[in-house]
């Protein structure tokens, strides 16, 4: 690990003042991803600002929904009675990720900022535009079974690894961010970004900004929601494909569907085609299949991940059926 200056801060203002003084400084939350990247010399901060003592850990009901403190742990969030009851899809998604030990350490804000697990990004001996802009993408012609089928560019074919964020995308969450100048709200759909020509950027957060909370607006699909995850082993593995789905129903008619996919793109992939197809349709197996077809028709597979198209269809159908049946 490269040497770094360490300081622990006690309030957000202090954290922001410190990080504004050094463009090579990084905030430390749970550290479950950052420490790993530092050990591999992929992340090279020369200063670590420990924000673990900040009091941004509250999970509370607000007028518009529920606010998740950025530093509340993943375990505390998944098990909070308000979340289990009103946003069970989120509990399920968080519990689908990592291991109990890691969820006990990982913070909500940090979960959003996880970096890709693309093995070329981790291997500093190979080219990677995300790690070293302009060096090329080793995965494009390399072993790309785990990689993207939507929204990739020749610059980057990596996928975004978080399970929690897939549910947050389907839940239309907002990310509350503080800097020295202002507080701003970033809609979840705009928080993570597609690689374009600058895959070194994963999201729209600026240096000097601190995530303070994630806000979940009320919804009416808690009882008809699902999180389905398909992976190489049954637990403690990243998704090949995952689907978060919520259905607003009027009898058997779908008034609205909210669907996001993981393991398929550089950001949580909102399945807008499937959502559009399902609007005002009957909740039938045939319509679920057509919605899945409509979404997966956009897929552009790489050499080793064509299987994700069929898997994506089946995962979408499974998630929609599970959500329709209810009882998550």
């Amino acid at each position: 690990m490269k040497s770094f200056k360490f300081s622990a801060v006690n309030n957000p203002a202090e954290a922001i003042t410190l990080i504004n003084k050094n463009t090579d400084a990084a905030f430390l939350g749970g550290g479950t991803n950052l420490l790993d990247l530092m050990k591999e010399h992929v992340a090279l901060p020369n200063e670590i600002i420990d924000i673990g003592n900040l009091s941004l850990k509250e999970i509370k009901a607000t007028a518009s929904g529920i606010s998740l403190g950025a530093l509340a742990k993943n375990t505390a969030t998944a098990n909070h009675p308000l979340i289990r009851k009103n946003f069970p899809m989120l509990s399920k998604a968080i519990l689908a990720g990592a291991s109990a030990q890691i969820r006990n350490m990982a913070t909500n804000g940090g979960n959003l900022l996880q970096r890709t697990r693309c093995s070329y990004f981790y291997d500093i001996a190979t080219p990677c535009n995300k790690r070293n802009p302009g060096s090329g993408c080793a995965a494009l012609e390399g072993f790309n079974r785990m990689h993207a089928i939507f929204g990739w560019t020749r610059e980057c074919v990596a996928v975004y690894p978080s399970d929690m964020s897939i549910a947050l995308s389907a839940l239309n969450a907002n990310v509350k961010v503080l800097s020295s100048e202002r507080e701003r709200i970033i809609p979840f759909q705009d928080f993570h970004i597609l690689p374009g020509a600058h895959p070194e950027k994963d999201n729209s957060l600026q240096h000097g900004e601190l995530i303070t909370a994630i806000e979940l607006p009320k919804n009416d699909f808690a009882e008809h929601s699902a999180y389905i995850k398909i992976r190489d082993r049954n637990s403690y593995a990243f998704a090949l494909v995952s689907v978060a789905a919520g259905l607003t129903l009027n009898g058997n008619t779908i008034q609205a569907a909210s669907i996001a996919m993981g393991g398929v793109a550089h950001k949580p992939w909102r399945a807008l085609n499937a959502e559009a197809y399902l609007k005002d349709k009957a909740a039938t197996a045939a319509n679920f299949a057509k919605a899945a077809e409509a979404e997966m028709a956009l897929a552009q597979p790489l050499a080793h991940n064509k299987f994700k198209i069929e898997m994506g269809k089946k995962a979408l159908i499974n998630a929609l059926e599970t959500a329709f049946k209810g009882n998550i």
């Binding site: 360490f6 430390l28 479950t32 420490l35 420990d50 109990a100 890691i102 350490m105």
Partner: peptide, 14 residues
């Protein structure tokens, strides 16, 4: 809480 000591900086254990 059970945690991973390999991903915990000692400096954060104050």
């Amino acid at each position: 809480q059970r945690v991973l000591s390999c991903l915990t900086l000692a400096a954060t254990c104050q």
